[in-house]
Design a protein around this nucleic acid. Structure first.
Length: 724
DNA sequence: CGGCCAGTTGTTTTT
DNA sequence: CAACTGGCCG
């Protein structure tokens, strides 16, 4: 059979990785070095050339999107369906293991996955039930603590502490876990931990999968945490081949438990492993690569890697010093307009920022210039309130013990079961060690509740039972529709007259069509409903409707990882913003910020533009920060500092806040230049920072040397321009 | 039970 | 500054 097509168009290092024999391998894959391609070709090679069965391959990724893409590309390359090959996220695979071996894992068959939002709600109630002050013990922090422990493989009984703070956190952890177990609920970290314990403690299960998975491939290995790596080692056993692909320079999730050190640990634990470096970059210009290399070279303990390209130097990196964030937005918009005028597509442009708060001013600027844009991140489909409400009803139908779902819908829409009645149910449930559903049942039957409360609660119990009966044999779509109608959820949002409520109704309808088109695999003996619920919990639905519109892409530096754009703006290049204030001072965290900078820079294919603002408003406070230290780490010859050309107009025309493209106007306006020094009769000397408004209303912002920054009406301020 | 006001608190995000 | 929470009152 001719398999040369599996190596076609690959460089030597890529070929080495794809065609390696049965062995362990570390592929250190630099940004834009064709990493996914190598993984996909390697899998195809294993099947086609080495006669591996698709069933003997386990491929792990970090997002569902990456998993889907990988499967699609393998199928395309092989021209055959590999539906039964295990490709998925750590969480997805853990879930699959737990479903298949729920008894060995000590879980009920209908266990349900909860997301971080559910987790926090549950924690909040747990903390209240422990009579702890929820101000002093925020659910968020408790979740942080618990997840960190689980990521390290620790159960409460493994933790021994004399620290009183941690003692309480431990107490919360214990109570929370009991609540989860009672309700058949599994959080994300629990999926991984339980699956690990399952493999570790059950020899027959472990050996079964060790025999099966001859080839294990893990992508984005620098993002694995302790338990995920422990998992890989367990499955690898003594004889299986492990290929890990990663880049220590792109490790940017240390703050949520990822351990770059796992790369080193791998080399220690798999001493036979061959290391292959993919350093040829197919994405960026030589100038961009050189600059990125030079920045990342400031980090210590790197495995070492230098990106190179056969391509051209390309344009220099532009650096724009804005006076404030509005000016920054203005400049970016002007450059995008220029890009578009020269025939560039808007979807080829990305604006990257360190934190989401920065997007607002940028949005305003784009909006004013009528440039379509799309923001990545934000609320995803299954995270929306109304969708979660509807899903909670389905969850309760699937599992009456699900307290999280019970709490969520028992009074949504309101049916007269208030905090008081609910408190009684909670107390009784706790004292009897019962899930709330059964506690409520007992309270109605044994007349512990009476009067209004009793009939309200009885009404809810009847409603759910009735829905269950009506839905029992219906297909999933009809079932969902029935639940939306019967529960009154749809009616509740339909009755509300607001744009918000309208979108909510639309989302509920969208949920119905999602359940209609959902195709269950029937793999683990689950009902279609149970399978859909797992799907909803594990894949929160990233796709956005207008994804294919020609629009500028706005996103955080973190969400840009893995993407590429011809034109990239990196904004807010200031100390305190990037690197973030929270990270300066801690060398480890600072290095992670530097890696983030490296990730951002290497997103750019043709042109990279960096911007920083001398003054930036944060939490209503004007802040003055030095340019980011990362700017000083760039090779000076790669940088072109952009001269300020924007000018302020005297009050006259109908113009406002965003002077899009002002820097290209051929005429020079009479007026003040941003950054210009001016003199005020009472305030003294200062620097022009910003301006806004039209005509007689136009105002100018001046940062006075003695009294700080002030907004003044241009018409009355009587400013004298100073030479400078 | 719901609405309003005052007080609080602000990285990065996927599963 | 603004979004969100919690407490209090009608």
């Amino acid at each position: 059979m001719d398999v040369s097509y599996l190596l076609d168009g690959l460089n030597d290092r890529q070929r080495d990785a794809v065609s390696a024999g049965e062995q362990d391998m570390l592929v250190l894959a630099g940004a834009g070095s064709g990493k996914t391609r190598v993984l996909v070709h390697r899998i195809a090679w294993l099947i086609q050339v080495m006669n591996a069965s698709p069933l003997s391959i386990l491929a792990v990724t970090f997002t569902n999107k990456a998993a889907a893409e990988m499967r699609g590309r393998v199928e395309k390359l092989l021209g055959r369906d590999v539906r039964h090959m295990w490709i998925g996220t750590f969480h997805g695979l853990a879930h699959r293991l737990l479903r298949a071996h729920y008894q060995d894992a000590g879980l009920p068959q209908n266990f349900q996955i909860i997301d971080s939002d559910d987790q926090q709600r549950l924690l909040k109630r747990t903390i209240k039930a422990l009579n702890l002050d929820d101000k002093q013990w925020p659910a968020k922090q408790a979740a942080w603590y618990i997840n960190a422990k689980k990521d390290d493989g620790l159960r409460p009984q493994h933790i021994d502490t004399y620290d009183p703070t941690e003692k309480t956190q431990l107490q919360i952890y214990t109570a929370y876990q009991e609540a989860c177990d009672r309700s058949g609920l599994v959080d994300f970290a629990e999926l991984l931990l339980r699956a690990h314990e399952l493999l570790r403690d059950n020899r027959h299960v472990r050996e079964h999968y060790q025999r099966r998975f001859r080839h294990i491939l893990v992508d984005e290995f620098q993002d694995t945490n302790q338990i995920q790596y422990a998992w890989v080692r367990l499955l690898a056993g003594q004889q299986n081949n492990v290929t890990i692909v990663g880049d220590d320079d792109q490790s940017i999730y240390g703050w949520r438990g990822a351990q770059v050190e796992n790369l080193q640990h791998f080399l220690r634990d798999f001493p036979q492993a061959q290391t292959i470096r993919l350093e040829q970059n197919y994405r960026s210009t030589a100038t961009i690569l050189k600059a990125a290399n030079q920045v990342i070279a400031n980090n210590s303990d790197r495995l070492g890697k230098d990106l190179w390209t056969e391509g051209n130097d390309g344009e220099q990196i532009s650096l724009y010093a804005a006076f404030n964030e509005q000016d920054e937005a203005r400049y970016i918009v002007s450059q995008i307009v220029r890009w578009r005028d020269q025939g560039g597509a808007l979807s080829d442009v990305a604006i990257l920022y360190r934190n989401n708060a920065q997007s607002r001013v940028l949005e305003e600027g784009l909006l004013y210039a009528s440039i379509p844009y799309r923001i990545y991140g934000g609320l995803r489909f299954f995270d929306r309130q109304e969708v979660k409400d509807a899903v909670a009803y389905l969850r309760l139908l699937s599992n009456r013990r699900d307290d999280a779902a019970f709490e969520r819908v028992v009074n949504t829409p309101s049916r007269g079961i208030g905090e008081r009645s609910l408190g009684l149910i909670r107390d009784y449930a706790r004292s009897q060690q019962l899930p709330m559903w059964f506690a409520a049942q007992a309270m109605v039957n044994d007349a512990i509740l009476s009067g209004r409360a009793k009939s309200a609660v009885a009404g809810f119990l009847d409603l759910i039972n009735q829905l269950d009966q009506d839905c029992f044999e219906l297909p999933l779509g009809k079932q969902t529709h029935k639940v939306l109608q019967g529960s009154g959820l749809l009616a509740m949002y339909e009755a509300e007259k607001s744009d918000k409520a309208e979108t909510r109704v639309e989302n509920l309808k969208e949920l119905v069509s999602a359940t209609e088109t959902f195709s269950p695999t029937g793999d683990e003996d689950l009902s279609p409903l149970a399978e859909f619920l797992a799907h909803a919990a594990l894949e929160s639905g990233e796709e956005q409707a207008d994804a294919h519109q020609d629009a500028v892409q706005l996103m955080t530096l973190h969400s840009a990882k893995g993407l590429e754009f011809p034109l990239v703006f990196m904004t807010g290049m200031e100390e305190g913003t990037f690197p973030s204030q929270m990270s300066v001072g801690e060398p480890g965290r600072l290095e992670e910020e530097r890696r983030l900078c490296y990730v951002g820079m290497t997103r750019a294919m043709e042109k990279l533009i960096l911007t920083y603002a001398e003054s930036r408003r944060l939490y209503g406070q004007e802040n003055f920060h030095r340019p980011s230290r990362f700017i000083a780490e760039l090779p000076p010859e790669s940088i072109q500092e952009v001269r300020v050309q924007t000018r302020v107009q005297q009050p006259q025309a109908t113009r406002s806040r965003f002077h899009t493209g002002a820097s290209h106007e051929s005429f020079v306006q009479t007026g003040y230049q941003l950054g210009q020094r001016v003199l005020h009769q009472t305030f003294g000397e200062g620097t022009v920072l910003n301006y806004e408004g039209t005509g007689a209303q136009s105002r100018i912002q001046v940062n006075f040397d003695d009294v700080g920054s002030k907004w003044l009406m241009v018409a009355y301020a009587k400013l004298t321009p100073l030479n400078g």
